[in-house]
């Protein structure tokens, strides 16, 4: 091995330090969190409307970067009819194998959004994972500084086929191939 050049040693040391800093959570960043966000989805066809609610969505927002992550337990979705709930878990999203859906992404131009109590339109881009299949997803929504936290609201559409969720031919007329999803959460300082 060559004798080490002091300049190289310095570079190596500082990069090593950066590496650890880079992987560690941003110590100074303020994080906002929820454990009881609300997800609602809606499938509409001429024959039948199917909707479900889940009030156990959890989420984390990094208030200095606008990065966020949400997750929801698939088995905690509640339907009007018990049989729908069973089919949802057993046959469609296969929640034993894929227990969670997650979304991680970033709110665009987060640094320009003031905490002035007004509602602001935002766009978020990220990765949506459901049924074990991750797809890029763009979401439009609003953010609002309210009661000491950030209130997030968004809606987007998911094409079931993109996530390999198969609707059998017999119920093709009952279940929409594109599902509308509404999300609402109040995130408070952690």
């Amino acid at each position: 091995m060559n004798s080490m050049n002091p300049m190289n040693t310095l570079l190596f040391g500082s990069l090593l330090a950066l590496l650890f800093v880079g992987f560690a959570p941003d110590a100074g960043a303020q994080q906002f969190m929820t454990r009881e966000g609300n997800v609602h989805f809606f499938s509409s066809t001429p024959i039948e409307d199917i909707e479900a609610d889940n009030r156990q969505m959890s989420g984390l927002l990094n208030a200095s970067t606008g990065d966020f992550a949400f997750q929801v337990q698939m088995r905690a979705f509640h339907f009007e009819k018990a049989l729908m709930e069973e089919h949802f878990n057993e046959s469609y999203v296969e929640s034993e194998t894929y227990p969670k859906a997650t979304f991680q992404g970033s709110i665009a131009s987060w640094e320009n959004i003031p905490n002035d109590g007004q509602r602001h339109d935002v766009v978020a881009e990220g990765e949506f994972d459901i049924h074990g299949v991750t797809q890029p997803q763009r979401i439009e929504g609003t953010v609002q500084w309210m009661d000491g936290g950030w209130k997030l609201q968004a809606n987007f559409e998911v094409t079931l086929a993109d996530h390999k969720i198969v609707i059998p031919a017999v119920v093709k007329d009952n279940i929409s191939p594109v599902i509308a999803i509404d999300v609402e959460a109040q995130l408070l300082p952690r």
């Binding site: 992987f23 984390l60 992550a69 991680q104 990765e127």
Partner: peptide, 15 residues
């Protein structure tokens, strides 16, 4: 590490 892993880090933290 400093770029792509940030959002993933949040999800891990959440988990």
């Amino acid at each position: 590490g400093s770029g792509a892993l940030h959002a993933q880090g949040l999800l891990d933290e959440l988990n």
